[in-house]
Write a protein that binds this DNA or RNA. Structure first.
Lengths: 123, 123
DNA sequence: AGATTAAGTTACATTATTCAACTAGTATAC
DNA sequence: GTATACTAGTTGAATAATGTAACTTAATCT
């Protein structure tokens, strides 16, 4: 496709450079972290407690889960509520803002469910 | 929401556990790496050369770009073609499979373009 | 009493990512 | 003719992110 790159003198110039992190990249920094998407996805049907999330995300360490949940909370995608049971439990719930990302996650889910078999990546 | 978590005896059981990496997570492992989405996005309108990609993704090191491109090629999302010019240049192009992810990336783009201003993350 | 639950935290090991400098051969401006 | 920018990367060392396993405190069930 023409016009996206140009040579001025001997200097090559790109016309469609990303203004620092471009939208795709900015989005990925919020949702693309390891486990982040999965966490959000598992909250889509209602609040879930910390250890239950840990069980749902077989493979993720509690450390990572705690950190990702903290980030998601900071950024307003989820809320954290302490439930006065014995022992005390903590429920995470998705916010309206968080839910606005679900459409996109669903798109991703559909895409990866149709992956060719040789694309089953474990790394 | 009821029914996703259950207590059997004193043992808590999750009914919707991810079978190892769940679809969301599998997708993210392919598209969610740092710079991966951006790279693919910048190839959507036709082939682009290595250094031009590097210019477009201000912020990413050539090392990362080279590695991400290698991964994308291995997984069949893009192709790599050496062009016999002087000096030799290399063009990257998106495959049909790669293009199948664009819908999802576009969804992400729209989402992050509508982020509240306080969500402008630089980390 | 002993095991299990809650929600994390801690220290340490392994990976990922970044940064800056470098390769080698060619073309272009001055 | 010489300096400079170009090509597509690679290299090594520094920093950041992630993983692993053990641990915490207090309460409940067997």
């Amino acid at each position: 496709m023409a016009g996206r790159v140009k040579t001025v003198g001997k200097r090559r110039i790109v016309l469609e450079a990303c203004t620092e992190p471009c939208p795709i990249e900015r989005g990925m920094r919020i949702l693309g972290g390891k486990w982040t998407g999965s966490l959000l996805w598992h909250l889509k049907d209602g609040p879930v407690r910390f250890n239950d999330l840990a069980r749902m995300l077989g493979g993720a360490s509690k450390k990572m889960i705690a950190e990702r949940l903290r980030q998601l909370e900071e950024r307003g995608l989820i809320t954290r509520t302490v439930v006065q049971s014995a022992p005390v439990s903590v429920e995470y719930d998705i916010t309206e803002f968080g839910a606005s990302a679900l459409k996109f996650l669903d798109e991703l889910k559909v895409w990866s469910e149709n992956l060719p078999k040789d694309q089953l990546v474990y790394s």
